[in-house]
Simulated assay, not measured.
Amino acid sequence: MKLRSTLGASLGALALVLSTAGSAQAAQGEFHYKYVDGFGQENTVTLHDPHSGKCINLHAVGEDDELPGYGPHNDTDTAVTVYVGANCEGPEWRLKAHGKPAKDTLELRSVRFDAPVAAQ
Rank of each mutant, 00 (worst) to 15 (best):
T78K: 02
V17T: 14
C88Q: 04
R112H: 05
R4K: 14
H59S: 13
A9H: 04
V82G: 04
Y33H: 09
V36T: 15
K96D: 13
D37L: 02
D114S: 05
T46E: 07
R109C: 00
T81A: 10
L108R: 06
W93M: 03
L67N: 14
T81N: 09
L47T: 02
L11Y: 11
A118S: 11
R109E: 00
A97L: 02
Y83I: 06
D104P: 03
P68Y: 12
L18Y: 07
A118C: 03
G71M: 08
G53T: 09
D49S: 11
G53Q: 10
L108W: 04
T78M: 03
V36L: 07
T46H: 05
D114G: 00
N57D: 14
V82N: 02
V80S: 03
L18A: 14
P68F: 12
K103W: 01
A9C: 13
G69A: 09
L16R: 03
S19F: 11
K103P: 03
F113G: 01
A13W: 07
P116R: 01
G8V: 09
A102W: 01
D65G: 00
L58S: 08
D75H: 15
A9S: 15
K96F: 05
D65I: 06
G38W: 09
A21Y: 12
N43Y: 05
A115L: 10
E92G: 08
H98G: 02
V45R: 03
P101I: 05
Y35C: 07
A79W: 06
Q28V: 07
Q120S: 12
G22A: 10
V61R: 04
D49W: 07
L95N: 00
N43F: 02
V17G: 10
L108T: 01
F113M: 00
N43A: 07
P72M: 13
T76Q: 07
S10N: 07
Q28A: 05
F31R: 05
F39E: 13
L7G: 04
H32C: 01
G22M: 12
L11G: 07
A115I: 03
W93F: 08
T76G: 06
D65W: 13
G12V: 12
L67S: 14
T44P: 04
Y33C: 10
A26L: 15
E107M: 05
G38L: 09
F39G: 10
E63D: 15
G71Q: 11
E92H: 12
A86E: 11
L106G: 02
S5P: 00
K34C: 11
Y35H: 14
V17L: 15
E92T: 14
A21F: 09
L95V: 03
E92S: 15
D37H: 05
N87I: 01
A97W: 02
T76F: 09
S52N: 04
F113C: 01
K103N: 08
A118L: 13
P91Q: 12
T105Y: 02
D75F: 13
K2E: 15
N74G: 06
A27D: 02
A15E: 04
A102E: 07
G22H: 11
R112E: 09
N43H: 15
V80H: 01
P72T: 12
D49V: 05
E107K: 14
H73E: 08
V82K: 02
T20Y: 09
Q25I: 12
P116K: 01
S19C: 11
H51F: 10
D37N: 14
S10T: 15
Y33F: 13
S52W: 09
E107A: 10
S23Q: 13
S110L: 05
A15T: 10
